[in-house]
Nucleic acid binder design. Structure first.
Length: 955
DNA sequence: CCTCTGCGTAGAGGA
């Protein structure tokens, strides 16, 4: 869909429009006083319209409220404007707002006096003869009506949807519902303004009776201009739309199986238009980097800016730009196809419900309450009561449409609560005006924004700034302030050697430092300490990571040391204990003036947010001494760059031997999109410091990862870590029970080892069991492995292990489902079943890994081919690591082959056959069924039923 | 083949 805003640069000019479709980042169109004024005046007009009160007093009140609203204060901060400036600007408009209402609003006493000239369509329902008429607005039907119109491929927001009465001399008045477009700029009545109204008229016609006309409201003068688009006008606009859509939609082509950026239409040669175009740099860099026939080779050469905007860039820079533009384009395409908004109109609610992420057949119940300005609380109930709701989760962003996908995108908002038969959510629109039997669908809204942050950052990287290889300062004494020395020395006391080295490296860096944190080496602690040291030295720090939870992890630690910080980001995503530090909470304590806001933004040395949060107004002004990026090895390059622009020096913390950034498009991945900035910069070994002393795994578990990935560099931090084993208080009892229960000649070595604290690593080869995989559309699972996991967990719990100390890991979601469905009940509640990816950064005392894949010659998935994923899976356990899988299948994966070889050498593999496994499973399951509560003492068997000397299982 | 987290939007006007 193409946005309807009809400014010259986005709708009319070929190349410019394409460039602006790529780069919609704020950074290039940072706004202006006039734009902010426009927004605020719109706001005031719309508030007056909602309350049907355009009296000067009321309008003054609305203006005063707007001038201290959080959002506008933020923008004033960005633009370095004062509230007084802004007030003056806005107040100029207020009288004409009242004036406009007096002239055109029918509730006003002398309404309908103004004569307008309508240019009527020749075949229109309006009259041909008299072009002069008067118009009154009778009703405000909607404000900021959101229209997504698949029929024309257009989307947009209509400022005001109004009922109007058109009077013509000697005729009966005509009633229409028409779009009003408000303008605060010059009364140009220009082609751009008129085109925008024509498109809105067209979009309105898809929702209701064709209004045939719309109106431009110029608020500076308070005048109203009718705009009637005839068939030809509409056709021409749609043609422009189609050509733009074509270039945006077909921005990549495949040649010999390889994708590349498709050529754009010829660059425009309008010096006047280019002069002020916000996309100037992007246009120039794009042209230099991607066009086969760059303009400098052209004979006529009107775009001198292409040269001046890009001459600082070398071939390497341009290559980086075009390479990542392609990668982002490929990835954006895949993401859009996957969970894009188009499914709202392409799929019925029933279809979409099956794949999850949609709730159809919903009706409004109860009243809609106003939570705050522009936030309305709605309760929906399922019309057909017996169906359970699937897919939607609290916190999801949603789009509300009507069930038949005619009124698409009526409102957007967030799910706040899920009940048995309904959903409660906060929406940006009040839907109570729709009749009570309107049926709605709520769709999960995934891919908003696309990759605009990536591209915006990429563009910013192309800015003309000095570059150089990493440099370092010679001595610490020159960086440490004298009065901070003692504090710093004190803080350093708690650290181990590599951690201390890391601190030193950071302090001595002039540009950047990479901290490689191998599993369990205390990355969070190290970052926390680093922040404390930098804080003590009086440095400002921007603290970021890709996820909210990673940011909050560090902040939770920092909070304990009473270090002050400001946390940016949506309250709903922030950890509960960190909420008091968020901008939102601080503002709630009463920020009315720009000075107070500036104070808040500048108060703390430490500011924390996610990498994607760099669009915040604070970054248009504030700069930091250091930027620390946690989990940097999991962040794609263009995203990681974002926060770095705002700091003098930066520190990336991560481990490229663990999971890389997620890239959905296979081609983009193969072209290197999953290479993080962390990995790329690791080549500068001067800037790298390794944390190799770990406090998580005991020595046996650690040895796996050392053999697989770290070539023996990983060390245990203490004897205690190295020798720590699983404590199972009731183990003896369980083993006795086992003895009593199963008395067969082949005692299961594996089951015994699984419970034995002194064998921390056990691998069960299920190839003889056998345990074949199941491949379904929804994913891959392995039922037998799931049962074995259940049996093991049951046994561990029985032996006295706490459920919260056990973690189950599988590479596939479908397997997690299979396992979870077996582990129902309160006793398993605290147990965590999750994917490898989700376990990154975490640990548990006991980890059970189910590898799932087991087939004689079938396909190998991509997941298990990745060394890094396996490395993560085997480094989560502190005391005991139990693995299940079919060795012959798994040996076809190179990483697993290496792991299995090592396990074999160490004699950590057991083979079991079907009957043994069956007995073991039967035993453990019997325990489940025989006692409803697992943690009660076990039923005792009579002594006589067991032959003690044999120490065997028995039926 | 199947791993998943971030993003509030669309439009504010200038020349």
């Amino acid at each position: 869909m193409i946005k309807c805003k009809s400014s010259k640069s986005s709708m009319v000019n070929g190349v410019q429009s394409n460039i602006s479709a790529f780069f919609v980042s704020k950074a290039f169109d940072g706004g202006s006083k006039q734009m902010l004024n426009g927004t605020i005046v719109h706001d005031i007009f719309q508030k007056a319209a909602i309350s049907s009160d355009f009296s000067p007093e009321r309008i003054q009140t609305f203006a005063a409220e707007a001038l201290k609203s959080p959002n506008y204060l933020g923008q004033m901060y960005s633009l370095k404007l004062t509230q007084a400036d802004m007030r003056q600007e806005v107040e100029e408009y207020l009288p004409s707002l009242s004036e406009w209402a007096k002239n055109y609003l029918h509730t006003s006493p002398q309404a309908g006096q103004k004569q307008l000239t309508l240019k009527l369509p020749s075949d229109g329902a309006l009259s041909k003869q008299d072009a002069t008429c008067s118009v009154t607005v009778t009703d405000f039907m909607d404000i900021e009506e959101n229209i997504w119109c698949p029929r024309f491929g257009l989307k947009g927001k209509i400022d005001v949807t109004a009922g109007v009465r058109i009077h013509r001399r000697g005729r009966k008045p005509t009633e229409r519902i028409v779009p009003l477009e408000l303008k605060t700029g010059k009364e140009t009545n220009s082609i751009e303004h008129r085109s925008q109204v024509i498109l809105y008229t067209l979009m309105s016609s898809a929702r209701r009776c064709d209004p045939e006309a719309g109106f431009l409201v110029y608020l500076k003068t308070g005048t109203l201009h009718p705009v009637v688009g005839n068939h030809m006008d509409r056709r021409e606009l749609i043609k422009i739309r189609n050509s733009l859509a074509h270039h945006v939609g077909n921005n990549r082509i495949k040649i010999d199986g390889k994708s590349q950026m498709a050529p754009l239409p010829a660059i425009v040669s309008d010096q006047q238009a280019c002069k002020y175009c916000p996309q100037k740099r992007n246009c120039a860099v794009y042209n230099r980097a991607l066009e086969r026939d760059p303009v400098e080779n052209c004979s006529e050469y009107p775009q001198a800016f292409v040269q001046s905007e890009s001459e600082h860039l070398s071939q390497v820079h341009l290559q980086y730009f075009s390479h990542w533009l392609l990668l982002c384009t490929l990835e954006a395409h895949t993401m859009e196809n996957k969970g894009g908004r188009r499914n709202i109109w392409l799929q019925t609610a029933q279809q979409r419900e099956k794949s999850g992420g949609c709730a159809g057949n919903m009706q409004l119940t109860g009243d809609v309450s106003v939570l705050s300005d522009g936030v309305y609380k709605h309760s929906f109930e399922r019309k057909v009561g017996d169906q359970t709701l699937t897919g939607l989760i609290v916190g999801d962003r949603i789009v509300v449409s009507d069930q038949d996908s005619v009124l698409i995108g009526l409102a957007t908002g967030y799910v706040t609560e899920i009940t048995v038969s309904g959903v409660i959510c906060s929406l940006d629109k009040n839907l109570s005006k729709y009749s009570s039997n309107t049926v709605f669908r709520l769709d999960q809204d995934e891919g908003a924004g696309g990759l605009s942050t990536h591209l915006g950052n990429l563009s910013m990287l192309m800015e003309n700034t000095p570059t150089r290889p990493p440099q370092f300062i010679d001595s610490l004494s020159s960086v440490l302030p004298r009065d901070a020395k003692d504090t710093v020395a004190n803080i350093l006391k708690g650290l181990n050697k590599p951690q201390k080295q890391a601190m030193k490296k950071v302090l001595l860096s002039k540009d950047y430092t990479l901290i490689v944190g191998m599993p369990g080496t205390g990355k969070t602690t190290t970052i926390c300490t680093l922040v404390r040291i930098l804080h003590a030295c009086g440095f400002s720090v921007l603290l970021t990571s890709y996820t909210h939870s990673a940011v909050d992890n560090i902040l939770l630690k920092l909070k304990r040391f009473k270090i002050g910080f400001l946390r940016l980001g949506r309250a709903q995503k922030v950890h509960h204990d960190i909420l008091p530090f968020t901008e939102e909470s601080c503002r709630a304590k009463g920020i009315q003036t720009l000075e107070e806001l500036e104070q808040l933004y500048n108060k703390e040395l430490i500011v924390a947010t996610t990498c994607m949060g760099v669009k915040h107004p604070i970054f248009s002004r504030r700069r930091f001494d250091f930027c620390i990026v946690d989990e940097a090895s999991q962040i794609s390059q263009p995203v990681c760059l974002g926060p770095l622009f705002y700091a003098q020096r930066f520190v990336l913390v991560g481990d490229h031997q663990q999971l890389p950034p997620i890239v959905q498009n296979a081609e983009a991945r193969s072209l290197g999109m999953d290479e993080s900035l962390f990995k790329r910069l690791e080549h500068h070994s001067d800037a790298v410091v390794q944390l190799n002393v770990q406090y998580r795994m005991n020595s046996a578990i650690m040895s796996l990862s050392n053999a697989l990935m770290y070539e023996g560099r990983l060390e245990c931090g203490s004897e205690r870590t190295a020798n720590a084993v699983l404590q199972l208080p009731s183990r003896a009892q369980v083993e006795k029970e086992l003895d009593l229960y199963v008395c067969q000649p082949q005692y299961s070595a594996w089951v015994q080892a699984a419970l034995e604290p002194n064998s921390p690593v056990c691998y069960l080869d299920t190839s003889e069991v056998p345990a074949p995989e199941t491949v379904e559309k929804s994913g891959i699972s392995n039922h037998t492995e799931a049962i074995l996991v259940q049996a093991l967990v049951t046994l561990l719990l029985k032996a006295g292990c706490r459920a919260s100390d056990i973690g189950v890991i599988a590479p596939y979601r479908q397997q997690l489902k299979a396992i979870s469905s077996l582990l129902q009940g309160d006793a398993f509640k605290a147990l965590e079943v999750n994917t490898v990816d989700k376990y990154q950064g975490r640990d548990k005392s006991v980890i059970i890994v189910s590898f799932v894949r087991s087939n004689p010659e079938g396909n190998l998935g991509e997941l298990l081919q990745d060394w890094r994923r396996l490395n993560v899976a085997i480094t989560r356990a502190k005391h005991k690591l139990l693995m299940l899988g079919s060795a012959p299948t798994l040996r076809r994966y190179a990483p697993l082959e290496k792991l299995l070889c090592h396990l074999q050498q160490e004699d950590m593999i057991s083979f079991e056959n079907e009957s043994l496994i069956a007995e073991f499973v039967k035993f453990s399951l019997m325990q489940v069924t025989s006692s409803s509560c697992l943690l009660l003492p076990m039923r005792r068997y009579p002594e006589s039923t067991c032959d003690k000397n044999k120490n065997l299982f028995r039926f």
